[in-house]
Each structure stands twice: as C-alpha cells, then as structure tokens.
Design a protein around this nucleic acid. Sequence first.
DNA 1: AAGTATACATACATTCGCGTATGTATGTTC
DNA 2: GAACATACATACGCGAATGTATGTATACTT
Lengths: 228, 228
Amino acid sequence: MARRTKDESAQTRETILDAAEIEMQARGVSQTSLNRIAQRAQVTRGAIYWHFADKRALLEAMVARTHLPLRDLRECLSQHIPGNEPLWLLREVMRHGLERLGNDPRHRRVCHIVMHRCEVTDEGHPADALMRAMFEDAREVILSLCSEIDQLDLLHPPLSARDASDMVMAFVAGHYECVLRHPETHRADRDWAPLVDAALRGLITEAAARRLAREPAAKPRELEPADH
Amino acid sequence: MARRTKDESAQTRETILDAAEIEMQARGVSQTSLNRIAQRAQVTRGAIYWHFADKRALLEAMVARTHLPLRDLRECLSQHIPGNEPLWLLREVMRHGLERLGNDPRHRRVCHIVMHRCEVTDEGHPADALMRAMFEDAREVILSLCSEIDQLDLLHPPLSARDASDMVMAFVAGHYECVLRHPETHRADRDWAPLVDAALRGLITEAAARRLAREPAAKPRELEPADH
DNA sequence: AAGTATACATACATTCGCGTATGTATGTTC
DNA sequence: GAACATACATACGCGAATGTATGTATACTT
C-alpha cells in the first residue's frame, strides 16, 4: 500500500509519535531504535524518515505536541483570581502544574522521557534545549510573581524574590522528580493543595500565611491540554 | 608494557574511573564508548575489561566510590545535636545534603551522571538501581525523623509525617535538579541555610518555627567524603 | 486520462561499539 | 631461575542501528 490521503498521512504521523512516546518511556531514548517505533506504529522506518528528518526531529515534535507554555497558563488562571493578587495566582500556578501530572497522561509521559529517559550531552540533546526553554519559561513567570509578592512585603525575611522563586522551582521540580521516578511510592493523583500551602507558608510572613489559609482559592475551570 | 605492580594496577583502576566520570558527564552514559574512556585514561579497552566486567559494572563501581549512605550521615550528625532533637537533626541533614553539592565535586559529578546523563529503562539501568537504593535510604531516614517530629506534635496541620517527608525529599531533589541541570542560574556554593529554614517553616507549627529561628544549630565538624 | 507529486515500503551500504579470544611482557612465588 | 599468575594490549567477529537510495502504488492535479 502507498500514498494514503492527506488525513491518513497526518494520522500516521500521530501514530508514530504515540509509538515513540511509549517506546521511549519504556526503554529510554537512545535505546529505542527507529525500528522498534516503526513496529509499534505498524509502519516501516521509511515512514518515519518520511515524516521526520531523524530521531532528533522526532523527539522535538513529540515534545512540541504537548508543550503548554506557562505564560499561557498564567494568563488563563489570572482571569479567575479575584483582584489578580500574585500570591493567590502563584498558588494556583503551582497547584495546576502539579495536578497536570495526574490529569494529563501525555504531559506526564513526555516529561518522564525528557527528564529521565534521555541523556543530556554537553553539545545539547534536542530534548535538552526544550527542557531548558520550558524551565526558563516557568522561571520567568514564577520569578515575576515572586517579585510582585516581594513588593507587597509579603516575603518572610531574609528571603529575596529570587530565593522564593528558587524555592518554588525546586518544589515543583522535586515533586515532578519524585512522582515520575518513584511512582510506586509517590502518587500523582493525590491532593496537592496542602503541600502547596505548606511550601508557600514557609516563604511568606505569618500574617500573609494566615490570610492565605483563610481564603482557599477559587478553583478555576479545567484547562484543556495544549493541542497545538 | 604489561604486568604493573599491584599498586600501579589499583592506580590504573582509579584512572579509568576518573576518565569514565569525565566522559560520561560530558557525553552521557550510553554515548560514551569504552574506547573513549580508555583513550582518556591512556589505556586500551583491554585494561577496562580486565578491571570491570562491562560498562554496567564500571558505572556501579563509579557510584560506589562516592556513595555515602544517609544513615551514616545521620549517625554522624546526631552526635552534634544537643538533645538529639529530630527537628534540628533534620535541618542539619538537609543542610549538609545540599552543601555537599558545593563541597564534594566527585559527589556532584556522579549525581549529575546518575540523574541526568543516564537513561532509565524499565528493566532497570545499573545506575537506576543505585539511584533507587540511595533514594530509599534517604527516604527512610527522613521519614523516621518526620515521624519523631510528628509525635512531638510539631507538624503544622493537616500535614502528616508522610507529607512532611515527601516535602523534604522533593525539596532536596528539586534543588539537586536545579543546581545540576542549570548551573548557570543556580549555584551550588550559596548559603543554603535560609532556604532550608524556609522549607521547614512551612512544615511545622508557628511555635516550633519560632523556636527553630531562635536557635541556629551548632555547625558540626566537616565530614570527610566516603573514601575507599 | 495522463502526469506528477505523495506516502510510504524495501533494499543496501556503512559505521560503530561490544564482547571475546589471544598474545605478551613483567611481577611473584617456590 | 623456572613456572605461574597478573595486567594489560591487540585482533577479530558480530549484531544492530543509521542513513540513503530506490521501488511502487495511490491520491491529486490539469
């Protein structure tokens, strides 16, 4: 068989990406041959080389398919925070970032691959560049929120906005690490709210913490995962 | 040349491990051929196969060379905590775990390799088993400390000992992640004390937090990195 | 209805790294 | 000092994965 219709071709492309996700999650990127991916996708390597230049491009497409810039998340969430207060916004961003681990299996798989199933080299792996882009994107949003919080004098001394940002980044990254690498002991579908509150509580003044505890944030509507 | 003396042989072994550390950190485990390691160590692959069964065994030896069980760290630190109070002990464990990133370059390199330069497969990479062992070892110590803290009624409601343990693990893992993966923005030689205090502050009651703030823990003597 | 571009499948050449088998010179033992 | 074990170096065979070149049937264009 050959020359399917355009829709079917696009479908083939998705099938290949799905197969790559599953195989790479199980065996690691470098241990997953294009042949294995082709077999799972019920095609030959020829099809893969038709749609993607090489394994690197395949990986990039895989990540791009699920990548939701945090900037957009902030935009979206900010519409649901009364008064747009940065502390409440930050709480929602953190909570949503962690809940996505349990809600969005594709995000979870891709993060798993990019974080643990893929070697980083000094010349820069394809996925590494994307990791860094995502990290920088998140850091920019979080640092700006922390700066706003700092300007409201809500940070617990002697913490700076930069310190708070580092803490939040490490908090999220650490829980991603635990959940993805040790799923048997760390479940993703837990209630993250108490942990987010505990993390924030350490960063802000006692007064701010008490206000935060009194006002459990309004739950925003569910966000649809980025389809692109 | 052949048949060096026993000391020289041991020296060769160390040289190979050093070379493996450097190469694997730069290129990733699977992208580092034994040939490259041999070249850097000024030997041939024959020498490597004499000292190690295969690449897996080489990696294991590399990790074993720097692995310091957290259990031992706790033992060691507990001698310097007056009254052996679990909250202060936990603070020292966290602080020391992070400071080791800046102090012990070998530990830092090996952690970098095991966390980011090495693919995890489902059947279990050699380094993965060691990662899990280290993680479990740390979790056991930290969870037991959190349980003690919980029994003293120092945990902020509604947190359980398990919650607190998860938070501490994520805190440390997250900062390891940030420092190792993004060294240009996250330095390891910073002062970790304020961040450790902030993390703990969110986990414990306000009263306990105030007591902790009043008593900056006695700095224990430096620990020598695990040799052998 | 014919021609062309598309969407693959098939076949081939090349490279590369691993493991092992074997060679060899030197320390060590008796 | 002869025999043996050690600590490597050298050489070989192998499989596996990659990239490319080519074949081919079908959709789309005119």
